[in-house]
């Protein structure tokens, strides 16, 4: 009898393990459907680069000017799960990603999977980048190939159990990985600017990663029901503000106030941008004015709500 129970238990465990293994197999893009990397436009890719904020994590801390293009890995990112170190994504063949193909790059950006088939941590915001067009990815890749090689290897992540088990990210993705579709439905007669703004904010700009609260006590994916309504500061003390057009948010700002803030770093009251947003604002200031106006147009039409979630 005991034998039987043990056998059944063994089989159940084996099946369970097999199921988890199967469910957490990294999912890859269909390489044949991706554009030809020879068609990538590096000049256009530079705009995508600033919209994506790549330098904020992958360039040295406090980098100014051309140093923002040296992507050897940036400041440690301290979180509740441990310390993340953004890797070297310069075109160096050994320390960086010089040996990657465009397909490898696209799989990292849109699937969160490395060339050797491992899950990447969602501290790298692929849940937003999945919404980027293949054309933008191709242009971005073309631009990144032109950047200086950095020969230093970034330190490995220092995470506590169970967060250091990469396979576990497969389960996280099952629950929280976002698809390519938009988060906020716009009316049919939405302007081109609103649609462009939605793309920039929800996709490459990955604004929701900080401005939207997370599910599962902060460990899960973005809580789209509270989209851009503000969240605890992932860097530590303080809060990331509500940027919906409500009283608790920035409802009193006009679209041109928002665009001016993104260009200059000044609020309508001439308070200044601060904290980690300084870097973001300076990246967005490098985009064409029409893109800042598009972001503003979108932020005026996202659902207005909230003070602080849970309060």
């Amino acid at each position: 009898m005991l034998d039987r129970i043990l056998t059944v238990l063994f089989v159940v465990i084996l099946l369970g393990a097999g199921l988890v293994y199967g469910l957490t197999i990294p999912d890859r893009l269909n390489a044949a459907a991706l554009p030809d990397p020879a068609m990538g436009d590096a000049a256009r890719g530079e705009t995508v680069f600033w919209a994506g904020g790549c330098a904020s994590c992958h360039a040295p801390s406090k980098a100014e000017g051309d140093d923002k293009l040296k992507l050897g890995g940036g400041d440690p990112i301290r979180s509740d799960f441990g310390t993340f170190h953004a890797p070297n994504i310069s075109p160096d063949p050994d320390a960086g990603i010089g040996q990657w193909s465009f397909v490898d790059f696209a799989n990292a950006m849109k699937r969160g999977v490395s060339p050797d088939g491992k899950h990447l941590y969602p501290a790298f915001p692929y849940t937003s980048y999945v919404k980027m067009t293949d054309g933008d990815l191709n242009d971005l890749w073309a631009f990144m190939r032109t950047l200086p090689k950095v020969a230093t290897t970034a330190p490995a992540n220092d995470l506590a159990f169970p967060f250091n088990v990469r396979r576990g990210i497969g389960l996280w993705k099952l629950a929280f990985m976002d698809g390519p579709g938009p988060i906020i439905a716009l009316p049919e007669d939405a302007s081109e600017a609103q649609k462009r703004g939605r793309y920039l904010v929800e996709g490459p700009g990955h604004c929701g990663q900080c401005h939207t609260p997370r599910l599962l006590y902060g460990a899960g994916g973005l809580d789209d029901a509270h989209w851009l309504q503000g969240a605890p500061n992932p860097d530590g003390e303080g809060r990331i503000p509500n940027i919906t057009p409500s009283e608790a948010g920035i409802g009193s700002w006009s679209a041109s106030d928002i665009a001016y803030y993104l260009e200059s770093g000044f609020t309508p009251d001439f308070d200044s941008v601060g904290g980690s947003m300084v870097d973001v604002q300076e990246n967005i200031a490098r985009l064409p004015a029409a893109d800042r106006e598009a972001i503003a147009a979108y932020l005026k039409v996202v659902p207005a709500a909230g003070g602080r979630p849970g309060e």
Partner: peptide
Amino acid sequence: NCKSCHEEFRIDKD
């Protein structure tokens, strides 16, 4: 000066 100081020395609590 506003933002270079606020980047490191102010915490937004609103």
